[in-house]
Design a binder for these strands. Structure first.
Lengths: 210, 210
DNA sequence: TTAATTTAGTAAACGCGTTCACTAAAATCA
DNA sequence: TGATTTTAGTGAACGCGTTTACTAAATTAA
């Protein structure tokens, strides 16, 4: 124990308050967003973000551990788009075909946005620090995917897919769908055949096999 | 027509002969291989390769359009390892479980080599030129995967998976397996649960649903 | 006040992939 | 023999992500 109350007055310059830090982060995110909207992914560089945010490149690293963690907040918007589409799909489809329709929507979403897909999944700078669940926590992916999760549960009730842990079923579906997107987008030279065919075949196989 | 015989004597310095170019490429590849063996992926930089090969960084771009196309030749060796494992797996397993065993081997291979996986699939510098099927052609992936293809065909004969285009079945399986690897490797923060569980669940779902 | 301590932020540097202006070399044409 | 043309190869440069040495600022302790 350093002290009983542990409120031994600190000695040097105080760090930014949480609010200050959050505000600073928001400034930077806004700058990045502007840059992204104007010039696309390739236009978002740490140097340009810093310039637009009115600070030095190094200063960004006081608030974000790296570029990836900064871009995360932009990716959140793209996921929001995906979720919105899934929601629409959920509402407009019949229960029996709902899961398949949503899965196809999921894959199509990425196939139509190969650049976004690459930027989100394919950019891994260095061996990421362990335990800092930055990605999922900060963008609330899990919660957003709840509509998908619900479709899984309902499909189970309808007997479209088997019983068992719905989280596991959902994960299997997501892995499979991302696999299709990954392969078609990053290895376009391989003779995958008609994208529609492999997309449909994969989704149906997964649903039939679950 | 510029000329009937079209063998109008060329005017300037002649370009490297095909053999010269191939030899030059081999020098560079060997340098890259050495660097890779000594220092891993992060040790392979165009500058260091050039130094080791005894030329300037710019010279590399006369023989390779970019780093990715240079690394391709190293990746070929990694694939060879994978193919060897698949071959072993084929020989050691019973026909009825062969396909599942090989699929699991496939996924495990990447899960045990996340750095290799990232280096091969996740590094996409710029929008790739269209039509230059560099990846598949140069490393002969398709031909190497024949043992897998054979397992698919045999599984069809045994009724383990359904009938239909075996290429399509193979593609679906590969997409699914890569999907598992991709997700577990690049989004480790997400609660995928036990890797073994999702791996097995995905492979079995695919096989059961095909 | 002054010294000590802690943080914020900057400017320069590092190594990177890649491009480009340029020089050197090797061939043909006059 | 030049003069010309085409390619090989170099070295400097660009912009990048990131790190680091340092300065400025803000606080407490003496």
């Amino acid at each position: 124990m350093t002290s009983t109350t542990s409120k031994t007055t600190r000695r040097g310059r105080p760090p930014r308050s949480l609010k200050q830090a959050a505000d600073g982060r928001q400034m930077i995110i806004d700058a990045a967003r502007t840059l992204f909207a104007d010039e696309g992914y390739h236009g978002v560089s740490m140097r340009k973000v810093a310039t637009l945010a009115g600070c030095s490149p190094g200063a960004l690293y006081k608030l974000f551990p790296g570029k990836r963690q900064l871009l995360l907040h932009i990716w959140g918007e793209i996921f929001a788009e995906l979720i919105a589409l899934l929601q629409q799909c959920y509402e407009r489809s019949e229960p029996a075909e709902r899961l398949e329709a949503m899965c196809l929507t999921f894959v199509d979403f990425w196939l139509l946005r190969p650049d976004d897909y690459r930027a989100i999944f394919l950019i891994q700078d260095q061996p990421q620090a362990e335990g800092d669940s930055y990605f999922v926590d900060s963008s609330g992916i899990q919660q957003s995917l709840q509509v998908f999760r619900q479709a899984v549960v309902e499909a189970q009730k309808l007997g479209v897919i088997g019983e068992g842990d719905p989280d596991e079923k959902q994960n299997v579906l997501m892995c499979g769908m991302q696999g299709v997107a990954l392969n078609l987008i990053t290895i376009p030279e391989y003779p995958w055949g008609d994208p529609e065919v492999i997309k449909l075949a994969t989704v149906r196989a997964l649903i039939a096999g679950l």
